[in-house]
Nucleic acid binder design. Structure first.
Length: 111
DNA sequence: TCTATGACTCCGG
DNA sequence: CCCGGAGCCATAG
């Protein structure tokens, strides 16, 4: 095992830096990691994050602002509940004002 | 090694 | 934005 830092670890580090009341997309994280084609891997990492330390995976949605992974959370509306608790409005798994709450690590985190 | 899968994204209609 | 199809890539078996 030479690679101590896996792709997952990178995703976790970025996910942890997502500010309160903000969300980002899998592609944005993947792009920040230098793997814009590995957006799916980010989602895969999020799924594994359940077994890791506390990762705000509920703040990560797809590019359309849809809670594609809410089904993977405990219960059925936990993910939506967590986001709404942060002041994010959601309708039918779709984040309202997605462009407003969107947090791009490439633009906000970096630099 | 190969196949299947997926919390995605892009493209054309 | 919705729908169908294709591309991408790490992980599991």
């Amino acid at each position: 095992m030479k690679k101590e830092i896996n792709f997952f670890e990178k995703v976790y580090q970025v996910a942890k830096q997502i500010p309160f009341g903000r969300v980002t997309s899998y592609g944005a994280i993947a792009n920040y990691l230098g793997a814009p084609r590995s957006a799916r891997m980010v989602g895969w990492a999020m799924k594994a994050s359940h077994n890791m330390e506390e990762i705000p995976a509920h703040r990560v949605v797809n590019k359309k602002g849809i809670l594609t992974g809410k089904h993977h959370f405990s219960g059925t509306n936990l993910m939506q509940n967590l986001l709404e608790n942060e002041g994010i409005k959601i309708t039918d798994n779709q984040i309202l004002d997605f462009e407003t709450v969107f947090w791009d690590p490439l633009k906000e985190l970096l630099r």
